[in-house]
Nucleic acid binder design. Structure first.
Lengths: 185, 185
DNA sequence: TAATGCATGTAATCGGTTACATGATTCA
DNA sequence: TGAATCATGTAACCGATTACATGCATTA
């Protein structure tokens, strides 16, 4: 998804500043499946203004640059609905980890072990983080949006599955590698 | 991973043409976690030649352009080892599906159902495809590389987990959506 | 006869990252 | 005192996609 659509999506849920939009992709609800940088968000927001898809209100602040709060117009809301109406591509789990581990044989065994541990930790903490947001929302008593619930559940499940797989296969991989190097040498 | 490194990786496993490298990302062993287009592969290959990381041998063919078979040099092999020695970033499952389903409430229920079905099918067939390659390799009697084995196993497991999750949550999502729309209207 | 596979490459364009520039406040 | 948070923006650069250009052989 291009950053313009991503901004449209965040603003669709309520007014926000560029800074807050960035946070939505860092800690917020989109954090585990989309990403955007300041260098793409601010230009996208300017374009949204220029295209009449959003309006901005400046809130003065002392010492800091004026806070610019963006809000979608009807045009913007329509554009968002058009965007989510498009046929999406198939999802692919583009992974540097898999790329590296594919060549495990070419790496020192302790480096392979360290890599796996790093990714177990990384996947697990992602899953835990999403899961804690879920329990939080559940206990807050607020109404639960079925779409968001499914999306966060998916995150927990898939990242958990990834971590579990690595935990189960760490040993076999390492012993497989040492057997191979013994045979080769 | 940048396409230059990706080409280095394919060529590390043996000589290949640009066309064959493309196939490695379409049906080959890298298909489920990396991607590259002709428009990036051919320039990357030229750069590899220019940098002395690969040499190319032209094989004449009738009617078609000469087939150019690339092979890594020692320099190229060293560059590849340097590349896989770098610290990678954390993996993120960037997903258009999750983005769309997050806004399920904004879509017609039948469209949501169709989307989910599409992705169940897509994830399942990815998992099946990788799995069939695994059993093929297993029954071929050839030696199994532990790294590649782990990587393909990961693909099967994670795509399967994704499909399973959607199958289990399709109904609840849809009924959640209809309840909500009844309450709102 | 139309589409697909084989086979290589270029060029326009696009979208995004990274780094830079600025600067007050608060927390450790 | 140094780092992090809040807050906005620009510009250089890079990498990749898309479309284009060519053209034979095979398969449906």
């Amino acid at each position: 998804m291009d950053v313009k659509t991503l901004c449209l999506a965040v603003l669709f849920q309520g007014e926000a500043t560029g800074y807050e939009i960035k946070k939505a992709f860092e800690e917020g609800p989109f954090a585990h499946f989309q990403r955007a940088s300041f260098g793409s968000i601010y230009p996208a927001l300017s374009k949204l203004l220029a295209d009449g898809m959003a309006v901005a209100e400046a809130h003065e602040q002392d010492g800091r640059p004026d806070k610019k709060v963006y809000r979608l117009t009807q045009t913007g809301r329509a554009a968002f609905h058009r965007a989510i109406g498009q046929e999406p591509e198939h999802d692919q789990f583009r992974s540097d980890m898999l790329f590296l581990l594919y060549f495990a044989r070419e790496l020192p065994p302790d480096r392979v072990a360290a890599l796996i541990d790093r990714y177990i930790e990384s996947y697990s903490s992602q899953a835990d983080h999403i899961d804690s947001c879920r329990t939080e929302r559940l206990t807050s008593g607020a109404e639960i949006d079925p779409g968001r619930w499914l999306v966060s559940g998916f995150g927990v499940e898939v990242y958990r599955a990834a971590a579990d797989y690595l935990i189960r296969n760490r040993g076999p991989l390492l012993s497989g590698l040492s057997k191979h190097s013994q045979a080769a040498e």
